[in-house]
Computed example of a mutant assay.
Amino acid sequence: MSTKNTLYVSVSNKSLDREASMNEQLEVRGTEKELEKLRQMLEQLQRDDEVTQFRAPIPYKSADHDKATNQFNDDLLKLYQLIYNLGTDKTKAHIHDMNILNKLQNSDYDDPGYEH
């Protein structure tokens, strides 16, 4: 049976640390293989973030129909799902309370301004 290690994830900093810090972090437990996948997903999210930040200032460009933004959102959803799967009960409760998995899966096209 593979040994599970505890690490702390900061999505906003896109970091995975062995020790908890004062910053917002989510505690996860996983095998080396699972934690490596998490590390790779954080690196991918960093790359996605770099691409979207250069596209954001383009005038009249709707970010909700942008491939780079869609990729970022898809990768963010996958990341939070993996964190949830590897998370402690406290981490799972936090993600559940954030309701982020549901929000990322459902667009807000019903809001005013998104007709047609």
Rank of each mutant, 00 (worst) to 15 (best):
M1S: 13
S2I: 02
T3R: 15
T3M: 14
T3G: 10
K4W: 04
N5D: 11
N5I: 02
T6D: 08
T6E: 14
T6V: 09
L7G: 00
Y8G: 05
V9C: 04
S10L: 09
N13E: 15
K14T: 08
S15P: 05
S15A: 14
R18I: 02
R18L: 09
E19A: 08
A20N: 06
A20V: 00
M22V: 07
M22P: 04
N23T: 06
L26A: 00
E27R: 06
V28T: 00
R29K: 13
R29H: 08
E32A: 04
E32V: 00
K33I: 02
K33P: 00
E34S: 08
L35E: 09
E36N: 09
E36K: 09
K37F: 01
K37G: 02
L38V: 00
L38C: 01
Q40E: 12
M41Q: 10
Q44K: 09
L45Q: 05
Q46H: 11
Q46P: 01
Q46A: 14
R47V: 12
D48P: 01
D49T: 08
D49W: 02
D49M: 06
E50W: 07
V51L: 12
T52C: 15
T52M: 11
F54M: 13
F54W: 06
F54I: 06
A56H: 08
A56K: 14
P57M: 10
I58Q: 15
P59R: 10
Y60L: 12
Y60W: 08
S62H: 14
S62M: 12
A63I: 05
D66F: 02
K67V: 10
K67N: 13
K67R: 11
A68K: 05
A68Y: 11
A68R: 09
N70M: 08
Q71Y: 06
N73S: 07
D75T: 04
D75C: 01
L77C: 06
K78R: 14
Q81N: 10
Q81M: 08
I83V: 13
Y84A: 03
N85V: 02
G87K: 01
T88A: 08
K92E: 09
K92R: 14
A93L: 15
A93G: 06
H96F: 05
H96P: 00
D97N: 12
M98H: 08
I100F: 12
I100W: 12
I100K: 14
L101E: 04
L101K: 03
L101Q: 04
L101M: 10
L104F: 07
D108L: 05
D110Y: 08
D110T: 07
D110E: 11
D110W: 12
P112D: 13
P112M: 07
P112Q: 06
P112E: 13
Y114K: 09
Y114I: 02
Y114H: 15
E115F: 04
E115G: 04
E115S: 05
H116L: 10
H116F: 11
H116N: 13
